[in-house]
Design a protein around this nucleic acid. Structure first.
Length: 187
DNA sequence: CTTGGGATGGTCT
DNA sequence: GACCATCCCAAGG
């Protein structure tokens, strides 16, 4: 298993966003298992980050960003999709989370296709709304503890280190000066 | 390959 | 009533 421990998430959100690249996201439903390697993440802060849900104040939706690190923050967006985040922040701060934007599929590819209702392997998990579909992650998983087997967890992944590419985050209009989108290439 | 518009509904003002 | 941390498909080069 090799779950990433709570302390992993108790660091600067940007550090955790980079650290999650190459780690493994695992989903277990009954006797079915889905997994993949995280290849793209984004960091979202608090009052320092106008692009963050937590920028203005704590609300019903963004509440998980203020709660225990190492848990899931799942929100519904664009009327159709869910986005999966991992709560992470330096203990001195009040809110923060890492959006998982892209994954390289490993196990359960056929289940992912079924969950997505599409066969195209190149488009199973290469976007935040796609990977939640493929992994069957919904609002029900919001608040789930990712440091143990709660049906959804994160474990160690790649052993070799990759070059990290940093760019502005996708789909936002403010905070573009922060290069908080991180990617690795995997082959 | 790139561009543009539609789907769709919760959240916040 | 506007705004989305999106995706898909069709049309145009």
């Amino acid at each position: 298993m090799n779950f990433l421990p709570r302390e992993f998430y108790s660091r600067n959100t940007v550090t955790v966003a980079k650290g999650l690249l190459g780690k493994r996201l695992v989903r277990k439903i009954g006797n079915q298992m889905i997994s993949g390697i995280i290849t793209e993440t984004e960091a979202y802060g608090h009052t320092d980050d106008p692009a963050s849900h937590a920028f203005r104040r704590e609300t019903e939706r963004n509440k998980p960003m203020f709660e225990e690190v190492g848990r899931a923050y799942v929100y519904f967006t664009y009327g159709m999709y869910f986005c999966f985040n991992v709560v992470a922040r330096n203990p001195k701060l009040k809110a923060g989370a890492v959006l998982i934007r892209s994954i390289e599929p490993e196990d359960g590819i056929n289940i992912m296709k079924k969950n997505r209702g599409k066969d195209d392997e190149k488009n199973l998990t290469n976007g935040p709304g796609k990977l939640t579909q493929a992994f069957n992650i919904t609002k029900k998983q919001c608040g789930v503890d990712l440091t143990k087997d709660s049906g959804l967890y994160i474990s160690e992944g790649l052993q070799t280190r990759r070059k990290i590419f940093a760019t502005p985050r996708i789909g936002i209009k403010t905070g573009l000066e922060n290069l908080w989108n991180f990617k690795i290439k995997i082959s």
